[in-house]
């Protein structure tokens, strides 16, 4: 997970960044994409806690 999580975040950021390209410069579009990926990852983590609370 320690290896895959950063990789997924980077891949997600690169994939989503073009969505914000129209309204934001490159730095902000990448940051917003990273924020979106991070929020999704956080949400997945919370689902994991709900599903297997004894592991946390």
């Amino acid at each position: 997970m320690r290896f895959w999580l950063p990789l997924l975040l980077v891949a997600g950021t690169l994939l989503l960044a073009p969505l914000f390209r129209n309204s934001q410069p490159p730095l902000q579009s990448h940051s917003l994409a990273l924020l979106l990926c991070g929020t999704t990852a956080l949400s997945v983590y919370l689902f994991a806690v709900i599903a297997q609370p004894e592991k946390f």
Binding site: T39, L46, E54
Partner: peptide
């Protein structure tokens, strides 16, 4: 290790956090 009540409360808190995050 977490007790049964603690686990139940952790789930409740995680659900509330998830709802507010969304």
């Amino acid at each position: 290790s977490k007790t049964p009540n603690e686990i139940a409360l952790t789930v409740l808190l995680a659900v509330l956090t998830q709802v507010f995050l969304i």
